[in-house]
Amino acid sequence: MEELLQQLFNGLSLGSIYALIAVGYTMIYGIVKLINFAHGDVMMVGAYVALAGTIMGLGFIPSLVIAMIACAFLGVLIELVAYRRVRPVSRLAALTSAIGMSLFLEYTMMYFVGAEIRTFPPGVLTERTYNWAGIIITNKDLLVLGTTVVLVVFLQFIIYRTRTGKAMRAVSYDGQAAQLMGINVNNTISITFFIGSALAAAAGMLIGMYYNSINPLMGMMPGLKAFIAAVLGGIGSVPGAMLGGILLGMTESLVAGFGGSMYRDAVAFIILILVLLVRPTGLLGKDTQEKV
C-alpha cells in the first residue's frame, strides 16, 4: 500500500513536469492549430540560458526571468521565420517546418555547447526532502507542481479576463472571422508564442534543476509527452493540460513501478492513439465539427 502511494507520488512529480510543459504547448496549439514541435526545444534553450545566468553568478529568480524573456523573443522569431508564411498555405508544410525547427534548435545548440551534459552550479536551489508518513517528496517536486498551478491560473486569467485573451479566443475559434472583426491575427499569434515560449523557458529551468542535468536533446521526449498530455486533457484547454500531464505521469509511474519500465513510452503513445480514436476532444476539451 505504501509502495503504491509512493508510486502515485512519483507519478505526481513526473506528471507535474509534463503538465508544466503542456500548459504552454496546449495554448499555442489551441490558437495556431499547429503542433509546435519546437516547444520542447525552446524549453531546452531556456534551460541553457538559465544555466548561463547561474554560472555568471545570478540567483534563481534573475536567471529565470532572463531565460523567460530570451525565449519569449525566440518564440516570436520562430513563428515569424518558420510558421507565418507557410501556416495558411499547407498544414503539412507547416508541420514539416516545425520538425525542422525542432532539430535546428537541438543541433545548433549542440554545435555551440557540445553534446555533453551540463549541470547547474550547486547552491542555486537548496534541496530538501520531506517524509510524510513514509511518503517521500522533495521541495523540487512541490516547486514544479506549485509553478504549474500558478501558471494555469495565470493563463486562465489572460485568456478569459483580458482583451488579448479575447482576441486569442476569437482567433482560435475562427481566424478569418476574427480578422474581419478587426483583430490583428498575426499580432495575436505572436503574443501567444511570446507567452507560450516564456512558459517553456520557465519549465526548462525548473526541469534542468529538477534532474540537475541538461543537454541539447533534453526537450525531445518531454515535448512529445507534453503533447500527449495536452491531447489527453483536451487540446486548447489549459486546466486540461495540467490534468492530462498529471494523469500521464501517474500512469507511466505505475507502469514503470510494476514491471513495465521498458514500455513506459509505448504506453504513453498508446494512450494518445486511444484518446484520439475514442474521445478526440480529450477530457476537458470542447467539441468542434470539421467544417467543409
Binding site: A82, V89, S90, A93, S97, G100, M101, Y107, T108, Y111
Partner: peptide
C-alpha cells in the same frame, strides 16, 4: 558532422517555407 544536422534542419525549414 556537427553542422550536418544543422544544415539538414535548415534545409527542411527552407524547403517547407519557401518551396513547399
Amino acid at each position: 558532422p556537427e553542422l550536418r544536422m544543422v544544415i539538414y534542419a535548415a534545409l527542411l525549414i527552407a524547403s517547407a517555407v519557401f518551396r513547399p
